[in-house]
Design a protein around this nucleic acid. Structure first.
Lengths: 203, 203
DNA sequence: CCACCACTAGAACGATCGCTCTATCAAGTG
DNA sequence: CACTTGATAGAGCGATCGTTCTAGTGGTGG
């Protein structure tokens, strides 16, 4: 049973959230910022205001199982942000550009630390931790699908929608990384503008 | 003094190369594959067939100084590959698409492990290791400049060339990461095709 | 010949890693 | 009430981390 009160409030970042959920959120944020190897389980527990015992109670598979859960969490979160951005306009070009703008704004607001939730972990564990790699692949596929659905809804053919989704997501990922390193919104905004142009030239 | 013979051969991956250079190469390859925190100095030394003493002799600043040197090495290497790809055609659109193709081929040949030499390290150390972040920023700027020069030579205006270079590099980076996770050349090839189209629509 | 120096070699240190283990606590359930 | 079960708590394990330190090697200039 949770020790903390359960129904008190649904405040997003604080108590009132079950221990397991707090641990997953902390893990997701830390993996996003410092990658898999750079994030210790003890730090995750401390950040989540949980104890090591609780972490291993919920994730008997240890760090790897926790990382998979954290990546799935980041997957859902990023998909929501992508979906919300895409809903901002019926024109797919405008919608994608708005997405890039939102990512840029959020990135600046975080002090340039919170970019894509999975890239760092994905690159670090490539080919050496299959379960994590699968979770990362599922996330990328999911985000591509969110984009592809939008493009299909806007009249693109199935294959063309998939290809466009692949490139747009890749450009946003790369631009976000560039923006983080340069501490500037410009790469994301430029990529958004170019992706809008690419979409228009194809419709 | 180096124990090994110096002028014997310039074979790229083996002996005949100074200890310092061997260490930098090993560090660069390992940082590329498993990031900064995931790569131990002792492993770098073993992989370079050097000893810990030698590593700290050449890099008294420790892991951080070695990482900076490794990133600069990856910078030069990737810039060369980019330049070689761009030289393959006078048409900038064709040249960029060839670049993507080459990256895809090289990536597959490495067993999907050797992507961008700095992304993993850059994301892991963002905002926590300024000297490494600077080296990563310099690399990205350098690669953008390689692309921008090509675009300017092909008749693009200065600002437009810079913007295109920024987006093309971001798309290639993102597509390479996607290709690694999916173990498929397709994301890189698709991004190359789309970037070619974007360039053509702007000229 | 020898003092010097660049380099090699690796033992050892404290800190931290992921993980295991036992003990305790708080609520149900009979 | 006793007993079970889910969850919390953290000490402690062996391994590895980055780093420091001393010792040794071999070629070179004086």
């Amino acid at each position: 049973m949770q020790t903390e009160p359960q129904g008190v409030s649904t405040k997003d970042t604080e108590a009132g959230v079950g221990t397991r959920e707090r641990v997953v959120r902390a893990a997701s944020r830390l993996l996003q910022r410092q990658g898999y190897e750079g994030t210790g389980i003890k730090l995750i527990a401390r950040e989540a205001e949980a104890t090591l015992g609780s972490v291993y109670h919920f994730f008997p598979g240890g760090k790897e199982e926790l990382a998979v859960a954290a990546i799935r969490h980041g997957d859902r979160e990023f998909a929501d942000m992508l979906g919300a951005g895409l809903d901002s306009s019926d024109d797919p070009a405008v919608a994608v550009e708005n997405c890039a703008r939102r990512l840029a704004t959020a990135l600046r607001a975080s002090g340039w630390t919170d970019g894509c939730p999975i890239t760092a972990t994905a690159l670090e564990t490539l080919g050496r931790t299959p379960r994590i790699q699968e979770a990362c692949g599922a996330a990328l596929r999911n985000w591509q699908e969110v984009l592809a659905v939008k493009f299909r809804d806007c009249g693109f053919g199935g294959e063309e929608a998939d290809d466009l989704a692949c490139t747009v997501l890749a450009a946003l990922e790369g631009a976000e990384m560039t923006a983080q390193v340069f501490r500037s919104e410009q790469p994301l905004l430029t990529a958004g503008r170019h992706m809008a142009q690419l979409i228009r030239s194809r419709s």
